[in-house]
Design a protein around this nucleic acid. Structure first.
Length: 873
DNA sequence: ATCTGTGGACTTTTT
DNA sequence: GTCCACAGAT
């Protein structure tokens, strides 16, 4: 999203905005820079008494939200009420009326996807590309942009790198060991989580609660946090939290710089405000509170409260809310208006566990006195049954701002929300599969539904597997959204480590990652020597490596090998300025022997990894510099998805927020799973309420049909457990919900089913060979394709962002996917050593046509299709 | 250096 | 049940 730090448009590079009081009409405004079209249209708009095009088609509330440009505005936008439309139209309106230049608008979102979408839609409204919206982006991308410019003020260089979770855990692990603590007893992962939590709250090491500090590492939590920050600094690196916290520190310490930003950002817009955490809140407050310079400094540094030091990032959370109220009230007096517009929905706050504070949205009017609150309740997405069900459910939550969605489009044919019971999760998956096929065929309502219009939204990702299994069997196309991402794959991360080190020779984490990858005979001993050497002299490891080669501290073999690496990197670094990034990347991967490493690897996943590396290099073609690329990747973790094929989407409820589907399936509505037991245990009442909001999000994703399922038996951690229907089912209103008559012998809402054996029931499709899906699988067999993981499959499976270990936990039982005819002689013979993506290595014990019986080393005997195994050795 | 066995964890996840 | 990380063996 952001390109290199060196091309950030900044204050002095732009024409000075003509000072104009907020609210002055467009007519007096000069032509915005680079905005001929915009200006022309604005002029035209001004000349007409009629309202401009982009405003027509908005409902009165939306229109108010768009046109109330001055002063604080909170838009409470219920699900499907046109939230994005309001945000984008509002920006277009500000631009078209000449209230601000594109570069004077700060618009923050949580995800890159949302930012991208907004850019596109503003472009459509304003006509042409919105080149001049440099400050539309995620909290983090905007944070980086600010930080790159002022890095030295927080002790970093502007080419600092952004570490991902993996790096951070390795780093913390080193710190824990350096403290002489047992890294078994004190897991780095846990501490990383704690740091993340503190940073979400905007807490420096000095500010963390005593209890927290004691809770980890024999009471050394605070020291570890301090050590962690120091280490980051010496690595010239940041974690994600720092992208917000460093700017906050920098603003606090440099009021003059903050003032520049105040002058710049005439309008601030925030998407998904209910998801902001305390740090983001503080960041926004700093940018939003244009105030009298002298007073501001005091307030912003927290000096107002006597018990606080000036370097405090914030008041600690305990004191925060009370203080905030006071300061908000006092700060607002006699200040220029804050043109901040926050859009959100308290009923869709589902990220509390990640530090989001719903309280931020609940408190908006107190934070910004005189704020206008606009509720968008007119829903354009769902039927009245769906809205009725969702509304009734969410009404069980307390402490809401209280919205009730309604629709004006009622249709007597609309189906109620259906609740289905199934015996166990397997039957659930089967029933959902059948329903999907019914819809697809048009048997359900006479309409042929596209798979693209259907989604299965689960509470926890382990639920996905059963659906995947079933859909593989049926030959039903599906796509899994979420999960490990492209950029988290081993080979991609290795390659990135090389690139990082080329760009940033001080990146020790990258160094350690690749120094012996591929194997160069630089094992633990050498690395430790290097590490100590570097630490003793306070220099980066790559520099230490260069130095140490001049000495005789290493054995000749290691020294030679290390020297080669050092030479390579210095050569590559020199090419940084001259070669296009993709060419340099290719050279690095070739000359380092990294590509060869995978070429020589005979394992089944090696070809896929090589493909990924190619893809990585290819994706750098358009990039202007390797640095810019690294930054983009650090901030943009989502892989682009291929929407071309027709497929059912499978995803978690969390990743479904913001999406909509004609038909939505919501399986797993059982106590313990949904609401999740852990949410209840750890979150208590508020935990339950967040779960309920999650249910609300799920329901409101549906436009026309919504099917809820619950089962009586589910396997949890490997054990079969009988389960109770979710309490949320009882919270649905009868008027909008219908309990499906079970089409299997078991079933019926509330009928229990205990005491039955799961084998008692008659299976309608005991024989899978009679299912339509099997027939389809037969039909598809000719165009069996190879998917990304080297699986051959008769139907397309798309994984957005899955990789690394292949389809995680996808069971590919061959019997049911029979694809090739048995007439072709098998390419395997008894005794062959084979590899299976899921079961690992094994020996062929029997062959029947294309089905192999394999004795796996670990998984035991299995029957699988030959397409799913590879010969090895 | 690579393979194998064991122990622990296991909700949600963006940046 | 299953995945992952790591220690110890080969």
């Amino acid at each position: 999203m952001t390109s290199g730090f060196d091309d950030i448009p900044f204050f002095d590079e732009e024409p000075a905005p003509r000072k104009q009081p907020p609210g002055k009409p467009a007519a007096e405004s000069p032509e915005p820079a680079g905005g001929l079209g915009i200006a022309a249209r604005a002029m035209a708009a001004r000349g007409q008494s009629r309202s401009p095009d982009y405003l027509s088609g908005l409902n009165p509330e939306q229109r108010e939200a768009v046109e109330t440009t001055e002063g604080p505005v909170l838009v409470l936008a219920g699900a499907g009420t046109g939230k994005t439309r309001v945000l984008t139209t509002r920006i277009a309106h500000i631009l078209e009326t000449g209230r601000a230049y594109p570069s004077q608008i700060l618009a923050v979102t949580f995800t890159n996807k949302a930012a991208r979408e907004m850019k596109e839609r503003i472009g459509l409204l304003v006509g042409g590309a919105v080149e001049g919206m440099p400050w539309l982006g995620t909290f983090h991308s905007i944070g980086v942009k600010i930080l790159r410019r002022h890095a030295e003020l927080v002790g970093l260089r502007s080419d600092f790198s952004i570490l991902d979770t993996d790096d951070i855990i390795r780093l913390i692990k080193q710190l824990i060991q350096a403290e002489g603590l047992d890294d078994k007893r004190w897991p780095a992962r846990q501490f990383a989580g704690m740091i993340d939590g503190w940073k979400n709250k905007g807490l420096d090491p000095a500010q963390i609660p005593e209890g927290d500090a004691r809770a980890f590492g024999n009471g050394r939590g605070r020291e570890l946090y301090t050590a962690y920050q120091n280490r980051l600094k010496s690595l010239n690196a940041c974690d994600f939290g720092d992208l917000l916290l460093h700017p906050i520190r920098m603003f606090r310490a440099n009021p003059d710089i903050l003032r520049d930003y105040h002058d710049r950002f005439r309008y601030i817009l925030v998407d998904e405000y209910q998801d902001t955490n305390t740090a983001q809140y503080m960041w926004l407050r700093l940018l939003a509170q244009r105030s009298a310079p002298s007073r501001m400094t005091r307030d912003q540094t927290g000096a107002q409260a006597s018990d606080r030091r000036p370097d405090d990032i914030s008041s600690a959370p305990a004191q925060a809310s009370a203080d905030r109220r006071d300061t908000a009230a006092s700060e607002s007096k006699g200040r220029p208006t804050v043109n901040i517009c926050c859009v959100g929905d308290d009923d869709q706050s589902i990220y509390g566990w990640r530090g989001a504070e719903v309280d931020n949205i609940l408190r908006f009017e107190k934070d910004f006195p005189g704020a206008k609150v606009i509720k968008l309740e007119r829903n354009y997405r769902s039927t009245e049954h769906i809205l009725g069900a969702a509304g009734h459910l969410i009404a069980h939550n307390e402490g809401r701002l209280g919205k009730t969605l309604f629709t004006e489009r009622t249709n007597p044919d609309d189906q109620k929300v259906m609740v289905h019971a199934a015996w166990d999760s397997e039957e659930e998956a089967r029933a959902v599969g059948e329903e999907i096929e019914r819809l697809q065929r048009g048997d359900a309502d006479g309409k042929n539904h596209n798979l693209n219009d259907m989604a299965i939204l689960v509470r926890a990702s382990f639920q996905m597997r059963e659906f995947e299994d079933r859909f593989v069997t049926l030959g039903l196309n599906y796509r899994v959204i979420g999960g490990p991402r492209f950029y988290e794959r081993l080979e991609v991360r290795d390659a990135m480590a090389y690139f990082r080190l080329v760009c940033q020779p001080a990146d020790d984490l990258a160094f350690e990652r690749i120094i012996n990858t591929p194997k160069r005979g630089l094992g633990d001993t050498t690395v430790r020597t290097l590490h100590d050497y570097a630490r003793a002299r306070d220099i980066p490891m790559l520099a230490a490596a260069a130095d140490i080669c001049e000495t005789d501290e290493l054995k000749p073999k290691a020294r030679k090998s290390l020297w080669d690496v050092v030479q390579n990197f210095s050569r590559w670094s020199q090419r940084l300025e001259t070669l296009p990034p993709n060419e340099l990347a290719e050279q690095v991967l070739e000359e380092s022997g990294y590509t060869d490493m995978w070429k020589n690897d005979k394992s089944a996943e090696a070809p896929g990894r090589l493909d990924n590396l190619k893809e990585l290099v290819r994706s750098m073609e358009e990039e202007e510099s390797m640095r810019a690329f690294l930054e983009r990747i650090a901030l943009v973790m989502d892989a682009e998805q291929n929407e071309s094929m027709d497929a059912v989407s499978i995803m978690t409820l969390h990743s479904a927020k913001g999406l909509e589907f004609d038909t939505v399936f919501l399986p797993g509505w059982e106590e313990g799973l949904f609401p999740h037991q852990r949410a209840l245990d750890e979150g208590g009442r508020s935990g339950l309420e967040e779960e309920r909001r999650l249910a609300y999000v799920g329901l409101t994703r549906a436009k026309h049909l919504c099917h809820i399922w619950f089962v009586s038996n589910r396997r949890i951690h490997g054990l079969w457990q009988s389960t109770m229907p979710s309490r949320f089912l009882d919270e649905l209103p009868n008027t909008h919900v219908e309990v499906a008559e079970s089409d299997t012998s078991y079933g019926g809402y509330g009928r229990g089913g205990y005491g039955q054996s799961r084998f008692d029931k008659a299976e309608p499709f005991q024989n899978s060979y009679s299912t339509p899906g099997w027939k389809r699988a037969q039909a598809n067999k000719t165009d069996a394709t190879r998917d990304n993981w080297g699986n051959r499959s008769g139907h397309a499976v798309e994984r957005i962002g899955y990789g690394e270990s292949g389809p995680r936990g996808k069971t590919i039982e061959g019997e049911l996917v029979a694809k090739s005819t048995s007439s072709t002689p098998s390419k395997f013979s008894i005794g062959d050593r084979v590899f299976h993506l899921k079961f690992g290595n094994g020996n062929v014990a029997g062959i029947e046509g294309n089905k192999l019986t394999i004795e796996f080393d670990r998984a035991g005997q299995k029957r699988v299709l030959d397409g799913f195994v590879e010969k090895v050795g």
